[in-house]
Design a protein around this nucleic acid. Structure first.
Length: 489
RNA sequence: GCCCCCAUCGUCUAGUGGCCUAGGACAGCGGCCUUUCAAGCCGUAAACAUGGAUUCGAAUUCCGUUGGGGGCACCA
């Protein structure tokens, strides 16, 4: 087993957590569990403007739903608390000021208007964009004058004008950036909050993070972080940038381009184990064929060497299939529990609530092989619950059938079935096959009529099992309704 | 515009110089099973972006091209 690792999942509470976010959380979790290390949750709530109420709770709920239990962080505490950056402000201020004192950073008095104008001009002239370093070399007098005016300030990092920073990413390998392409970025904002860059370096150091796992979009900021580590005299962590999950258009997942929140997958009836398994397979593989794995297998076999580098699209059709596999592997008792809330929610309103769990337990085996999501169950099995079936009489008349023969089938069935003392699948099959013989019909022809009569659809679970669950009384009643439907035509 | 990353079937991927006439999975198509629908099983179609170089030999190494993506905020 590898050296125990300390990793953190550090979301910013600016919206609902989507597959991309959770994808990195999963790999944090896997690496931590694989090495017997520590998985930390840290909330990066340093953007006062974009902060959203309830986002932290939403995120924690999503993590819990997927079984991504964290060892340190909100709710569980830990030796490096607090785990909300908004509660650690003095640390960042102190750190930033330290770099100013050391000569690695400086106060900047530029207004946002000036910066915006500067950027516009750079863009117009097709110049590389970035801060022009106006305040980098202010004299002591100039600084005093600005301060006297009470101008709001930020602290910027003084990026070396020459040289380069290189690092070895555990997935992407060696990456090099020239300092001349990096501008003097803001570390501390004028509202006293740190930027991501500063807060990350300070907290990852304070929390003894050994491996930083984050999306590939962060690669180009990594040199800034490394430069800060150097200025502070801290040892940087290992970097593991992960390939991104992209949308159907191959672009980065974003809320406004329809990224689905993780909890929506729960509400659509996906099982957490299935979604977890599916997400793990994006960017990682166990071998050339294994796809369905237990959590334990994934943890035991996890290895960074088997991670890919290419952005991947989220293929919901495959998720559907995988979810179906997981559903079929569930016991009747477990699937009953899982599907119950979905039936409660999506069955037609006229169906009496609460539902009878014992009845559902009888239905579940008939459903299990036929649904891919828990939500599918309600639409698929509604005929087990409603009193009145809605369908056109013509549905009763199958191919190569006439209304007359359908009617004969129904009447014959009514007669035979009403005299049955027990209503179980074997007896039903036996009885109805004989009836078909007697009527000179193929068994399938007869079954099709009864299927429609009892379920109002031509694709349904096996007929006799269905009829057994529905019970004698309801079946006969439905057959009578079918007879009258045909007679009225 | 500048910087960085990536590039195998439609999609997720295996592949780390010869085992590749490129393997698996989803979706597609065909068939078997079968009372319908599923599930299951069998089969089929489908890819190494491109040009060079290295090598006895390249999907695998190197360079260029093309394409895609990401970054360039007092957002993360």
């Amino acid at each position: 087993m590898a050296v125990p690792v300390r990793v953190r999942f550090a979301p910013s509470p600016t919206g609902k957590v989507h597959a991309g976010n959770i994808h990195t959380a999963i790999f944090d979790y896997l690496l931590a569990r694989h090495t017997g290390g520590t998985f930390i949750l840290r909330i990066e709530d340093t953007d006062v403007e974009r902060k959203e109420a309830g986002a932290v709770e939403h995120m924690m709920e999503a993590l819990k739903w997927l079984g991504l239990d964290w060892d340190e962080g909100p709710g569980v505490g830990g030796p490096y608390a607090p785990y909300f950056q908004s509660q650690r402000l003095p640390l960042y201020k102190e750190a930033a000021e330290k770099l100013v004192a050391q000569g690695n950073a400086y106060y900047c008095y530029c207004s946002s208007e000036r910066l915006e104008a500067m950027r516009k001009e750079q863009e117009a002239r097709k110049q590389p964009s970035g801060y022009d370093r106006l305040c980098r070399n202010l004299t002591a007098e100039e600084r005093t004058a600005k301060q006297a005016q009470g101008i709001k300030t930020v602290i910027r990092f003084k990026v070396p004008l020459e040289g380069q920073t290189r690092f070895h990413d555990l997935i992407y390998g060696d990456v090099v950036f020239d300092h001349k392409n990096i501008d003097d970025f803001v570390m501390l904002k004028s509202d006293g909050y740190p930027t991501y860059h500063l807060a990350n370096v300070v907290d990852d150091t304070a929390m003894k993070i050994t491996h930083v796992i984050r999306g590939e979009e962060w690669i180009s900021s990594t040199p800034r972080h490394l430069l800060m580590y150097q200025a502070f005299g801290y040892t940087p962590p290992q970097y593991i940038h992960m390939p991104m999950i992209v949308g159907a258009n191959r672009a980065k997942l974003s809320k406004r381009r329809g990224a689905i929140s993780i909890l929506e997958y729960r509400d659509m009836g996906y099982l957490p184990e299935a979604l977890f398994n599916f997400l793990v397979l994006i960017g990682w593989s166990l071998d050339d064929k294994t796809e369905i794995m237990t959590r334990q297998q994934m943890i035991e076999n996890f290895s960074l060497e088997r991670m890919g580098r290419t952005a991947a699209a989220f293929n919901q059709e495959k998720l559907d299939w995988m979810n179906g596999v997981y559903i079929r592997n569930l016991t009747v008792a477990d699937l009953t529990n899982s599907v119950l809330p979905f039936l409660e929610k999506y069955l037609p309103p006229e169906v009496k609530r609460p539902l009878d769990v014992n009845y559902i337990r009888q239905i579940v085996p008939l459903l299990r092989e036929r649904i891919n999501t828990l939500k599918d169950a309600a639409a698929y099995a509604d005929f087990f619950f409603v009193d009145k079936l809605e369908y056109e009489a013509t549905m009763l008349i199958g191919k190569k059938m006439t209304a007359e023969t359908a009617l004969t089938v129904l009447k014959g069935s009514e007669e035979k079935l009403s005299s049955l003392k027990s209503f179980n699948r074997d007896l039903l099959e036996d009885t109805l096959r004989h009836l078909a013989d007697d009527l000179g019909l193929k068994a399938g022809q007869l079954f099709n009529v009864l299927r429609v009569a009892t379920t109002a659809r031509d694709a349904a679970p096996p007929l006799f099992e269905t009829m057994e669950v529905l019970g004698k009384e309801r079946c006969l009643e439905r057959i009578k309704v079918a007879i009258s439907k045909l007679s009225n035509n």
